[in-house]
Amino acid sequence: MRIYECADYRAMSRQAANVISAQVIMKPDCVLGLATGSSPVGTYEQLVEWYGKKDLSFARVKSVNLDEYWGLSGTHPQSYRYFMQEHLFDHVDILPENTYVPNGLAEDAGAECARYDRLIESLGGVDLQLLGMGRNGHIGFNEPGDCFELGTHIIELAPSTIDANKRFFASEDEVPRQALTMGIRHIMQAKKILLVVSGEDKADALAKALTGPVTPKLPASILRLHPDVVLVADKAALSRLDNREGVMTV
């Protein structure tokens, strides 16, 4: 794992955008696995800026998103489809038909999960998977549990996740209690993984994920078993890491 420590959120976002843009330049028809939430917003803003300067094109890129709230339509302002349109898709030249997000209104959650797995496999898997990490160590919506869920599945959101996401809704009662999420298998089968983590509130979980046991009780810990992971974090997120060996400051 390569670890980059950045001074702040803005520097972290630019460094993460560098990794993604390099992937797109090296393989213009790549498959990007994309994430939502506050962590990657600055990364998307930087990519949009570089696209506007004609430094980057997404015309041949395909994207698959990690997750979607169960019960929300893609036009709901708090859905992850809406988030992606607002922060990236509507501002670059990626083709709408090449952007994939789980369907939060599918009649059968199990069938939708199976369909999404088949879709990822039909694309040849993910070239670069962008991840954030929750305060409890979740990746995507793979919450802490007794085992790693392999395929796309429906998940009951942990109270800490609901609490963290309530700021995006009018009240906590409006936060969905379930989500569809890509499973650990397709995340770990991505050729490269880019993990972005920001903030002191995630420092404890990040330190444990990097140095503690690999366990489904801290889902991000499994990333240590992947052969090509880039972690880009700000100083606050890395503040609890005692062993600084190999950490590069940018």
Rank of each mutant, 00 (worst) to 15 (best):
R135V: 01
I94S: 01
L238R: 06
L34G: 10
G125C: 11
A209Q: 09
I94G: 01
F168W: 15
T36C: 04
F83K: 01
L180N: 02
F83I: 02
K166E: 13
G132V: 11
S79M: 03
D201N: 11
E174V: 04
M84S: 08
R167S: 13
G212T: 04
A111L: 11
S160W: 00
Q23E: 05
L241E: 06
F168G: 13
L210Q: 11
Y9N: 09
H138E: 00
R118D: 13
G71A: 05
E245H: 11
R81G: 08
D117W: 06
P77K: 12
D67E: 06
A109I: 12
L150I: 03
W70M: 02
S239V: 00
A7R: 08
V196C: 14
I193R: 12
R10A: 15
E5L: 13
L150A: 12
H138C: 02
Y116G: 03
K54Q: 15
S63T: 13
A7D: 10
A203C: 00
L88F: 13
H91S: 06
D127Y: 02
T43E: 07
R244Y: 07
S198G: 13
D201M: 04
T152D: 05
D173W: 07
S198T: 12
D234Q: 13
D90E: 03
L66G: 08
A22S: 01
E143G: 04
D117L: 06
A170H: 11
V31K: 01
H186K: 14
H186Y: 10
S171V: 10
L128R: 05
R244T: 15
Y100D: 08
D234F: 15
R2S: 12
G33D: 10
D8G: 07
V48D: 02
Y51A: 13
D127E: 00
L180C: 04
S79C: 02
Y69T: 00
D29Y: 04
R81F: 15
G246S: 14
V229Q: 13
V230L: 05
G42Q: 14
G199F: 12
D242W: 00
M26V: 01
D163G: 02
Q15L: 05
L105K: 15
P216Y: 04
T43P: 06
P40M: 03
R224F: 04
